[in-house]
Design a protein around this nucleic acid. Structure first.
Lengths: 237, 237
DNA sequence: AAGTGGTCTAGACCACCCG
DNA sequence: GGGTGGTCTAGACCACTTT
């Protein structure tokens, strides 16, 4: 269970991030990489396609694979990255406060989002995040039990994702996100330092496992002046 | 220049969108598809990977490829889709008004964004979009000349992308997007119906060609109550 | 003409799921 | 144990870029 192409991908990522290959420089050709790694060309191509999908390189016909710019600070925001990972990469001072951790009945909306029956209870975690000592993010996570039998306050204080993937062995596969701007609720005003703002950015996130099962719904509510979302999109088709 | 895997992908997309394969149903196995299309398994796998990347299916080990939910209305918003395509899919009544089309010198910020020299001029297009008869979006597009030798008002009234890709043969490959919430400028207040809102959603979009050349910068400014962004993200690594 | 990436093939072995 | 997808191989031909 090595997965050559993944190892090669990870090695190349490391080399690019360390500056061994710089922006606008061409990587060695697939032929050279194939010889260097003593593998087949298709395996090299799998690794390069991963680099391409993740915004490290652009493959140019007849020329090669050129390293493209990838603002380190922008990046991991997009897609499926935990808040914890993100904060670390950005060197932000972050404080997470757990306001509520409970096994609760669902209201109509959450029931619709998570597609559970009225009698099924779910884990609900309510947390705030302080960035530079200002309380600017409110996270409300809902987990379908059965996937998550137990949650503790100390887990919620750190990275829930690390717990789910590491301890519980859950395999997260994809997510759908929706971003809108709304009016703050009473709860927003209570838990966040909203000052004069009368808008709040709401990110609704639906997370699925590798068997296509929906298992988490998260609502992340941001003070508008501290919100920033970046995205890298490739045109495939 | 047929590209079997693309044809197979497109055929399957069509079948899914027409309901021949419904949510939670499994597609035929790779083996069956290979026999049906009289091709190799790797070619089938390329088509299925495209379906997976675009949020049509989830591949489940040992079981098969299951069709997943894909809100039709949500979708093409994410990534690289023109406003025109989007509006059509959503059955929105849209009116585009071209306020300015000019070949101009760049200011400091645009120069930085497009990475052009001070003496290089660029095409600038300023347009507003009416949704349901309300003027809620302001688009400011900047194109590097050399890629776009000529732009006409009638092109700007329709889809600039269709013109660039169709007529000019430009191949758009990837884009980086940044979304923030800001205070409206005087221009925003002049050109949009901002009513009481004191925030505006700004989408900054950097578009690259298939040779990794940056060629367009677009700033899309939305009235917050009419803004919605959806995203499908797959965890690859 | 030589080098590059894009597509395609026909095999092979493995890990996983289910009856 | 039979079916499924995941990985890997060693070739082949093509379209494109560069010299």
């Amino acid at each position: 269970m090595k997965m050559k192409y993944l190892l090669i991908y990870q090695e190349l990522v490391e080399q690019i991030e360390e500056g061994d290959w710089t922006v606008n420089q061409y990587l060695p050709s697939e032929h050279e990489l194939k010889n260097y790694y003593q593998t087949s060309r298709e395996t090299i191509r799998k690794a390069l396609n991963l680099l391409s999908q993740n915004g490290y390189i652009q493959k140019v016909r007849g020329k090669g694979s050129v390293v493209i710019e990838r603002n380190k600070f922008d990046f991991p925001v997009s897609g499926l990255v935990s808040f914890q990972e993100l904060a670390e990469k950005m060197n932000q001072e972050v404080e997470t406060i757990v306001h509520d951790l409970n096994y609760v009945e669902t209201d109509r909306l959450v029931r619709k989002y998570l597609q559970v029956k009225p009698e099924e209870k779910v884990w609900r975690v309510i947390r705030t995040r302080d960035l530079a000592s200002e309380r600017v993010i409110l996270d409300k996570d809902y987990f379908i039990e059965g996937f998550v039998p137990m949650l503790t306050k100390s887990v919620c204080q750190g990275s829930i994702y690390a717990y789910l993937e590491g301890e519980l062995g859950l395999k997260i596969s994809f997510a759908k996100k929706e971003i809108t701007v709304e009016e703050p609720t009473v709860e927003d005003r209570e838990l966040l330092q909203l000052d004069g703002f009368d808008n709040i950015v709401v990110i609704r996130n639906f997370v699925y496992l590798d068997n296509a099962q929906l298992f988490q719904y998260t609502e992340s509510r941001h003070r508008p002046d501290r919100f920033r979302f970046v995205d890298f999109a490739r045109r495939h088709k």
